[in-house]
Amino acid sequence: MRALYYFLIGIVLFYIDTVIGLVIPMHIGDKDIIFVPHLTFMYILIVCVYRSFGVAMVLSVVLGLITDLYFGSFYGLYLFGYILLVVIMDYFFKTFYRDKTMLFIIILASTLILEIYVAIIYA
């Protein structure tokens, strides 16, 4: 039953993430800036730390596929990015065991790495 709750929370965060991305575009001069919070990705990373690696991998595969099908012009982009960064998160948090400051820093760094990875693939 818990696994269903993890999945439902991930789906709700995916839709909240999509709505925030659509509602908050900014225009500075002639540039459009769109903030995308990646709540789904951050949720998967937190599940990797506080639950188990297996649950985080299943969520990353399912939610990565959903993200690719909903947003993607390159299928598998978010799927492989989520999987790779969940594996890296699991590796690093064997060293920094549930330290909240390091959790915050690594989640922000992972989100930045995901954005750079997506930008490189689209470029």
Rank of each mutant, 00 (worst) to 15 (best):
V36S: 11
L103G: 05
V55E: 15
G76P: 04
D32I: 10
I105H: 05
Y97K: 15
V55A: 14
K31P: 00
V55Q: 13
T40W: 08
Y78L: 11
A56H: 03
T95Q: 12
K31A: 10
F74D: 12
L77E: 06
K31S: 09
D32K: 08
Y50G: 06
S52A: 12
Y82K: 05
S73F: 05
F74P: 09
T67P: 02
G64N: 08
H38E: 11
L65P: 03
D99F: 12
L108H: 02
V86D: 02
Y43V: 07
V58R: 07
V47Q: 07
T95L: 14
G81A: 01
T40D: 07
I83Y: 01
G72Y: 11
M42V: 10
I106F: 14
K31V: 12
I88S: 10
L59A: 04
V61D: 00
Y50L: 13
L39K: 06
D68Q: 09
Y50H: 12
T40F: 08
V36M: 09
M57L: 15
L84Q: 03
Y97W: 13
S60I: 00
C48P: 05
G81P: 01
S52I: 08
I105W: 05
S73I: 04
S52M: 07
Y70T: 07
T67E: 09
F35V: 14
F104N: 05
Y91P: 03
I46R: 07
Y70W: 08
S73Q: 05
V87R: 01
V47A: 10
L103H: 04
L39W: 08
G76V: 06
G64K: 05
I66A: 13
I33M: 02
D32C: 00
K100N: 12
L103C: 04
I106T: 14
G81W: 00
L59H: 02
T67Y: 12
S60M: 00
V86C: 03
Y78I: 10
I46H: 09
I66Q: 06
A56K: 04
I44F: 01
Y82D: 04
F74W: 13
L69S: 09
Y75S: 14
V62M: 14
G72I: 10
L77A: 06
L63S: 09
F96P: 00
V49M: 12
